[in-house]
C-alpha cells in the first residue's frame, strides 16, 4: 500500500492580532490541530508562509523553531502533560528557568488560582488543578502566543469553566494572544473570533460582538 498524500490544510489565510482570543472549532480531521501545530512551531507548512512579527518561521530550520517555541509560545495540552516528578511550582520553574523574562512561578500559579498548592505533585492534584498548573507553566514565560489544544476536553464542565477562566484572565491581564481548539461550540462564546474548520479550510469566521463570561456557560 503506497502512502497517500493528504492535504491537512488548504488555502488558509489568517491573521492573529496581539491580545486576540481565537477559538478554532470543527470536526476531527478538519485541520484545526494542524494549524495549531504550525502556529506553535511544531510543524511547517509545505507551501505558503507563516509570519511571526514579520519573520518567516519557515526559514532557519529546527533550531529556529525551537527558539521560537522557547521564547514566544506557551502550550496547554489536552492531557496536561505535567512532569510527575516535579511539584506544581517546580513544573512551572522548569519553563521559567530557560525563559528570558519570566514571572516567578508562584505568581503564575496565583494567577490561575493555585497559590495555595505550590508544593503538590501532579498525582496529588485534581484534573482541573493539573490543567491550571499547565496553564501557569505555559504563561509564566510571558509568551506572545498561548496555544491550547482541547484544554477542557478531559474535564467536567464545572472544572472546565475554572480552566477557561484562567485562560481568559491571562489573555486579559497579560494581553497574550490566545488560540484555543475545542469541539465544544459553547466555549466559542468566550472568544473574540471563532474560526470554523471543515475539510482543511476555514469555512466560516465569526466575530463575537461581546465575549461571554465563562461563568455563564454550561454544557
Amino acid at each position: 500500500m503506497g502512502a497517500v498524500a493528504v492535504q491537512a490544510l488548504r488555502g488558509v489565510d489568517l491573521d492573529l492580532y496581539e491580545g486576540d482570543l481565537v477559538v478554532l472549532l470543527g470536526p476531527s480531521g478538519s485541520g484545526k490541530s494542524t494549524l495549531l501545530n504550525i502556529l506553535g512551531g511544531l510543524d511547517v507548512p509545505t507551501e505558503g508562509s507563516v509570519l511571526f512579527r514579520d519573520q518567516d518561521l519557515r526559514q532557519g530550520g529546527e533550531r529556529r523553531l525551537n527558539r521560537y517555541r522557547r521564547e514566544n509560545v506557551g502550550f496547554v495540552f489536552q492531557f496536561y502533560n505535567l512532569i510527575p516528578s516535579l511539584t506544581a511550582r517546580e513544573n512551572v520553574a522548569l519553563v521559567t528557568e530557560i525563559a528570558h523574562d519570566p514571572m516567578p512561578p508562584e505568581e503564575a500559579l496565583t494567577l490561575v488560582g493555585l497559590g495555595e498548592r505550590l508544593d503538590h505533585f501532579p498525582a496529588q492534584l485534581s484534573g482541573g488543578e493539573q490543567q491550571r498548573v499547565a496553564i501557569a507553566r505555559a504563561i509564566a514565560k510571558r509568551p506572545a502566543l498561548l496555544l491550547c489544544d482541547e484544554p477542557t476536553g478531559a474535564l467536567d464542565s464545572q472544572t472546565g469553566i475554572l480552566v477557561l477562566e484562567a485562560i481568559l484572565r491571562v489573555n486579559q491581564e497579560l494581553g497574550t494572544t490566545t488560540a484555543l481548539i475545542t469541539h465544544n461550540a459553547v466555549i466559542a462564546d468566550v472568544a473574540d473570533r471563532v474560526l470554523h474548520f471543515g475539510d482543511g479550510r476555514i469555512v466560516e469566521t465569526r466575530v463575537n460582538e461581546t465575549r461571554r463570561d465563562p461563568k455563564d456557560l454550561a454544557w
Partner: peptide, 16 residues
C-alpha cells in the same frame, strides 16, 4: 518519551 517530547514542545532543546 512523552515527558521529553512535552519538554521539546515547551522549547527545550535536544541537548537539554
Amino acid at each position: 518519551a512523552r515527558e521529553l517530547a512535552t519538554l521539546r514542545v515547551l522549547g527545550f532543546s535536544r541537548w537539554e
